[in-house]
Structures are given as C-alpha cells and as structure tokens.
Design a binder for these strands. Structure first.
Lengths: 144, 144
DNA sequence: CAAGATTGAGGTTTCAATCTTT
DNA sequence: AAAGATTGAAACCTCAATCTTG
C-alpha cells in the first residue's frame, strides 16, 4: 500500500462511485416522497416522454438509462401494473416489445419533471452551471 | 414534454447515473473473475489499507465509500467470514466497532491493487489523464 | 445461429426500527 | 436524547439460462 503516484483512472472510479451513491440517495428519497417514484422509474418515464415516436423498444430503453435488458423488464412491470406505461407490439417483428406512456403516465411525468428540477439543482449546488456542463461533457464521452 | 431549455443539473444527474452503471458493471465483472471481489469489497479493503492507523470505524468507512451504515455492516460480514478483515473494539467507547485488514486481507489488497490499475485505465480510456483529473476535481466538490 | 425479451436464482443496498452505550 | 451499530423487510439489479421469432 504505497501512498503511490497519481492514478487518475482509479481516483476517478472512486469518486464517481461515491458521488453517484450520494446523489442518487437524495434524488430517490425526495422523488419517492413526492411522487412515489424511484429515480430509475422517473428515468424510464422521461425516456419514453422524450422519444420522438412516444415509444421505445426495451433494448433501447435499457441503453438509454444504463441498465441491462433484464433490469428493464423488471422495472417496467410495476409501472405497467399501476397503469403508468403500457406495452405495444411491433407489426413487423414479433420479437420486439415497445413501452409507451399512458395518459396517466404523461400526467405524472409532467408533474415529476417540475419537481425534479429544483431537487437536482439543490443536490448539485456545489457546482456552477458551467462546471456542470463541463462534467456532462466529460461523462458523456465515457458512456459512449 | 417540451424539448426544453438547458437544464445542466438534471442532465448531469442523468449522465452521472448512466456512466456510473456502465463503469461499475465493468469493474465488478473483471474484479470478480480475478479475485472474487466486488468493486465495493475492494473499496473497503482499500480504505482500510490506506487508513493511517490501519483501522476505521464503521461510520467513517461508510462515509469513505458512500454507502449507509447499514450497508457497511452487511458488506463487512462476508469479508469477515472469509478472514479478509477483522473487527476490533474501542477501549474508550464500547459503541464503536473498528474494522481492520487481516494479513490475508493485506495480501489480497496488494494483488487486487495491481490488477485494478489497468482495468480502471481501460474502462476510462475515452478520457485523457487531464480530463480524468478535471472530472475528479469536479466530482469531489459534489461529494463534499 | 442471432436478436429481443423474460425468468430463476442470488446478491446487494436501502429505510425504518431497535438495541446498547454515552 | 444522541451516536454507533445491527436487523427485518422490501426493493432492486445482475448474470446465466431459456424461449420465441427472424
């Protein structure tokens, strides 16, 4: 365990993990108390709401929010049960399943989107807008 | 769902989540196959190995790796069971419990530390050293 | 066989409540 | 009452295997 030379890659993994955990706990807790949603739930609604065609294949949804295909299936189930999203088939390819917002889902997304802005702003208050944009730029390179 | 004005705070939360998920899946999978450790397990060993006194209170460990006190208790249990860490009492205060590396734990940490550098480097290859340092600087502000 | 999606099994983490010690 | 730590219950997510369709 040497005090060691600079290891930017490792330091980055360390701090990315820590800041992510801290930030997500804040977002989850506030979003849950306001709308009964986890941040991941919100991300799903948001991705569907901003998709050009209003619907998204499960694979693309997985890519968009950064979880596995399995994770998407499991996250979608309870959202479908409470009628926030619905599943649609594809006329051309019987393998693919789309997910889309229901009217109720659209309403909730609208409200949650209004709530989340100040929550995110407060949770990231330690950084200026410019710094946030810089961080976004850097992290985007990583996610591909 | 308006295409909306710039919302750097929200965009940041989005991309932080996505890049974290992607990065952690890589680290976990490679670390698991090489040493049977999750990245969080490694983080615990690393934090204990670099602590000045060689031991850390559970609360401080939680702070260091960004999980709750509960999470620390549960992560430590299996590591103690396979004799990588041991628990020590505090002579002054019977409430606090320290965690410290065993000789076996120190060995494994040494080996895992050697493995993890190239893994982290590869997983963050999309960024230059300078960019990584910049990202570390920004994220550190967030974690406090 | 490849792609999209789901399921079974297992592991992880959180919240809230609780216990002990200060 | 506050601080450190643990536990029960529940939620969540992954991997690997499987099923169906192309």
């Amino acid at each position: 365990m040497k005090p060691t030379e600079p290891q930017p890659a490792f330091d980055f993994c360390l701090i990315l993990n820590r800041s992510h955990n801290t930030l997500m706990r804040q977002l989850d807790s506030k979003l849950a108390s306001l709308h009964g949603l986890s941040f991941n739930d919100y991300l799903i609604l948001y991705a569907l709401g901003t998709a050009p065609s209003g619907k998204l294949r499960r694979t693309d949804l997985a890519q968009a929010i950064g979880v596995t295909a399995s994770g998407v299936t499991r996250s979608l189930l309870p959202l479908e049960k409470i009628h926030l999203i619905e599943r649609l088939p594809d006329a051309r390819d019987a393998r693919v399943g789309y997910a889309a917002l229901t009217p109720t889902g659209k309403q909730l997304l609208k409200h949650a989107t209004i709530s989340i802005q100040p929550i995110a702003a407060e949770a990231t208050a330690a950084l200026t807008s410019k710094q946030l944009e810089e961080a976004v730029y850097l992290l985007r390179k990583l996610a591909g």
